[in-house]
Amino acid sequence: MNFNKKEKGFVITVDSFISVSLILIFVLISFYYLSNVSLDSWNAVDARILAFDEAAVLEKSLAVENSIKLSSSELILASLNSTPSGYCFEATVYDSTLSTPLVHAIKTGCTKNSTNLTSVERAIAVKQGSIVTFYILKVVVWGGGA
């Protein structure tokens, strides 16, 4: 009978509507929980490793030493500009007491407006003749840069 066919179609339609709605609700609840997952710890670890690496590169490539000798940030800036995109870097060379900044550079296209900053320090020794002078290099990293 036609009536029976219509009834069957109605049940199938309602049933599918309910099941799709239920699945949507379940998926939305799942997304709610997943949206609460914080990756800040992993990002902080990544940023710290990047800062360590960049500070080591700046020292071992002699960019810091030559920048101090030339009183120019050009070499440091060139190194900062070759860092991975998506992260901003700032490097400052201080005297041995960390009181006077001597050379400063910030990656091109970056502005230091983030509150989520990661910083590391590295000791620098520069030998000129027989005199060794010590400095402190501070590298600051934050996400979302050029």
Binding site: F26, S30, F31, Y33
Partner: peptide
């Protein structure tokens, strides 16, 4: 299946 999805999402969070 959907409950399992929620359970895993909750656990992961």
């Amino acid at each position: 299946f959907a409950s399992t999805l929620i359970f895993f999402a909750m656990n992961f969070a």
